[in-house]
Simulated scan of single mutants.
Amino acid sequence: TVCRWWKEIEVLIVTGATTAKVEANNTAIKHTKRTGRGFTNARNYKTRILLRSAARTAA
């Protein structure tokens, strides 16, 4: 497995670049979508998403 992934491992060692921020954003989007499930009223759905986004940026 290490041999197969060596190019990617070498890039990580040299640059220190990871996809952690992208993965964190994807997870946040999924959590936001999950928060809105069950709302039949579009306005309540939008309000809930905005409140969740505000809570994330305030922390």
Rank of each mutant, 00 (worst) to 15 (best):
V14C: 04
I29K: 10
A54M: 04
A42L: 14
T27A: 04
N41L: 03
K46C: 11
I49E: 02
L50N: 14
I13H: 03
V14P: 00
T47I: 13
I29D: 08
R37P: 01
K46E: 09
A42I: 14
R52P: 01
R52K: 09
V11G: 01
K21V: 13
R52G: 01
N41E: 05
K30G: 04
G16N: 00
A17C: 04
T35L: 12
K30L: 08
T15K: 02
A54Y: 05
A54L: 07
A42G: 02
T35C: 13
K46P: 02
N25A: 13
K30H: 05
V22S: 10
N25M: 13
N44F: 10
A28H: 09
A28I: 06
T40P: 00
F39R: 03
R52E: 08
Y45K: 11
T47Q: 15
F39V: 02
R52L: 03
K21T: 11
K46H: 11
A24P: 04
Y45F: 12
I13Q: 12
A55W: 02
L12H: 13
V22P: 01
T27E: 11
T19I: 10
R48K: 15
I29N: 06
V22A: 12
T47K: 15
V11S: 03
A17S: 07
E23P: 00
S53T: 14
N26P: 02
A20Q: 13
R34P: 00
K46G: 07
V14T: 04
V14A: 03
T18P: 00
I29V: 12
S53P: 08
R37D: 08
R34C: 06
T27N: 05
N25R: 12
G38D: 02
T27C: 06
K30S: 11
R48C: 13
R34I: 04
Y45P: 01
G36E: 01
L50A: 11
V22I: 14
H31L: 06
T18E: 04
A55L: 09
I49A: 08
K21C: 07
G36I: 00
T18D: 03
